[in-house]
């Protein structure tokens, strides 16, 4: 095992960075999205923001659940975007393009998160 207790691989660090990004985006969505909802605008952002905050927190905890929560938020985003603008590429660009790119990265972290989870389980068993 290359890992000794307390050290992390590059892949694990990148996973944590991704978790921080998702948490920050989630916080922005919650705060600004609440502002928008109170102004009478869409409630998508505040709801999606709650999912993202949870996703980010669980990813930082090294839990696979974090990645699945993000993918859930992505599915919600696509359904909402298609409901709001239909199959219009220009309008899907701001709504779904960035989240989907991020989603590909999140999918890549699933094996890493699994490894982190199993290591923690092993440590817990010692």
């Amino acid at each position: 095992m290359p890992n000794t207790y307390g050290s992390r691989t590059l892949a694990e660090w990148l996973t944590l960075v991704l978790g921080v990004i998702i948490l920050l985006v989630g916080l922005f969505f919650v705060i600004a999205g609440a502002d928008l909802a109170m102004l009478g605008g869409s409630i998508y952002y505040v709801l999606c923001g709650i999912l993202l905050v949870a996703s980010g927190v669980f990813m930082l905890m090294g839990r696979t659940l974090g990645a699945f929560l993000y993918l859930g938020a992505l599915a919600y985003t696509w359904i909402w975007a298609l409901w709001e603008v239909g199959f219009s590429p220009v309008d899907l660009l701001p709504r779904a393009f960035g989240p989907t790119l991020l989603g590909i990265l999140v999918a890549l972290t699933i094996p890493v998160l699994r490894r982190m989870e199993s290591r923690r389980t092993l440590r817990g068993a010692v």
Partner: peptide, 18 residues
Amino acid sequence: MWGMSPIDQLFCRIKFRR
């Protein structure tokens, strides 16, 4: 409202509503 990402799109949605 438009943007590169949901972040700047959200910013413009708020600007629109305000």
